[in-house]
Amino acid sequence: MIENRPLTTFVSHSVLIIGVTLIVFPIWIMFVAATHDALRLTQVPLPLLPGDQLWANLQTLFQGKEFGIPIHLSVFNSLIMALMISVGKISISVLAAFAIVYFDFRFRMFFFWMIFITLMLPVEVRILPTYEVVAHFNMLDSYWGLSIPLIASATATFMFRQTFLTIPDELMEASRIDGASPMRFFVDVVLPMSRTNIAALFVILFIYGWNQYLWPLLITTDPDMYTAVMSIKQMLESGESEPQWQLIMLTALIAMLPPVLVVVFMQKVFVKGLTDSEK
């Protein structure tokens, strides 16, 4: 605080509280809708305070008869996909970055540019041909198909490259004098020194993986492989009858809970990672 202006501080707080309330309002409404029954959600105006049907709605979702897959199974699929994407991305990126920074080898720059290109091509843009490749490898309707095409990442490789460049050269010289092999150096020095980056990247990539939508929508036809996020669309389109808003909102709530918890509880490392990596 530079100077004491009680009035300005008061106004700042008031405006912030109003602003934050507006930002969180949709989520509150989502929660409220998830706690009422179908009948209440057909009567205008809709409730602003929670009801007592949360448990009943939850049970309906666990049975999952209406939408092809019980909620705990789709959440499980999402979890596997998100973990495969985040862990996979981090692993291949950290290895590639280590090679590019610490080794002099032929085609080094060529490989580097090849990885750089992937930064420029979001899935949405190359979706059709990627689909054909995955179909060709028989990876439709599988965890591999859900995750592998999304795990090549230039961003992560870049971030690790940046981190490695800040590790003092002396550490490598010392480890070489002590007779450590490159991989030994990687495991004992490089990895521990990148701990924070790995944690930050994990948060970002977990959210990225969990929230994938178009890709799972295209490559899964078997309801057993549906992810939590994409099952929403199925529910919205459930066709002949009015959408079951209390169930849709509860599914949405459950589907957004894991990434929200990750971001809130790993806030410090996430914020640091986000603002460092992309700058």
Partner: peptide, 28 residues
Amino acid sequence: MLKRVHYRSSYLPYLLVAPQIIITILFF
């Protein structure tokens, strides 16, 4: 961007970039 002190080439760096490069070629 290469470290001033670095390892001399062997088959190892190729092995390290291989997963990333294979996935990049196949899916990008």
